[in-house]
């Protein structure tokens, strides 16, 4: 199967009601790796992820996949900051994306059981999804996004509302997923998390990419004063 990556953004810009949200952004996401999108509040992290995924309309410039966008969509996943829980039990929530793709009920059930096992959700399969705890919801959200084996997964601050233990569990899952070859693009506020997970970093400010570099060089020798201040924990606006 032809890869949908690289993803190339050329002066990609998003507007909402005449107001620019993000852009112009030009960057390329290679087929492998773990990209961390960081920046202060309102920098445009979520909008950039949504723009890449196609949830936000590109009003100027281009967002191009290696294959036509319609084909690329089925091979992406998105995990939202606040998990969107369907009003179904965990098993049905996990089966839903598979059923959307025309998988038979029996096949889907088999895959759901396997996936639930991998994510530690086996005991919760009959539980109603909206009534799970925050950590369980985010795990389900992640499992649901990964059950279709997407080539690239976007994660919008998936650990923002979680405690340390749940965050560690999610991070462990993400490292395993990345090791299996899934391309990950994640936004975070947590510099420690960025240091732990990132292979490359996109530093956003006021809707523009201030820096895009390998994680090691970004954290050791940031090239912009804003990035340096942000890494040091100074208030950057």
């Amino acid at each position: 199967m032809v890869s949908i990556l690289p993803l190339v953004l050329t002066d990609a810009t998003a507007h909402m009601r005449g107001k620019k949200l993000v852009g112009p952004v030009s960057l390329t996401l290679s087929p492998k790796g773990f990209t961390m999108v960081i920046g202060p509040n309102g920098a445009g992290k979520t909008t950039l992820l949504r723009l890449m995924h196609g949830l936000q309309r590109c009003t100027k410039g281009q967002v191009e996949w290696a294959v036509p966008a319609a084909q690329a969509r089925d091979r992406q996943g998105f995990v939202f900051q606040s998990p969107i829980m369907m009003r179904r039990n965990v098993a049905d929530s996990l089966a839903y994306p598979l059923r959307l793709r025309g998988m038979s009920k029996a096949e889907a059930q088999e895959k759901v059981a396997k996936c639930a096992g991998n994510f530690g959700l086996s005991d919760l399969l009959e539980n109603v999804a909206p009534l799970l705890s925050g950590g369980e919801k985010q795990k389900l959200s992640l499992a649901r996004a990964l059950i279709t084996e997407p080539e690239i997964l976007f994660l919008d601050e998936p650990c923002a509302n979680l405690d340390g233990r749940a965050t560690r569990e999610i991070e462990h899952i993400l490292q395993q997923v990345q090791a299996r070859g899934t391309r990950l693009v994640m936004s975070t506020h947590d510099m420690g998390q960025a240091r732990r997970l990132a292979q490359d970093v996109i530093f956003l400010m006021q809707g523009k990419v201030h820096e895009h570099a390998a994680a090691e060089s970004f954290f050791s020798a940031p090239t912009t004063a804003e990035a340096k201040a942000f890494i040091n924990g100074d208030i950057v606006e």
Binding site: H53, L55, R73, Q76, F78, F80, I84, M86, R87, L100
Partner: peptide, 13 residues
């Protein structure tokens, strides 16, 4: 319900 599910269902294509 659509306001709640919108992004998810669009994301799932």
């Amino acid at each position: 319900l659509w306001a709640e599910y919108h992004d998810l269902l669009i994301s799932m294509n």
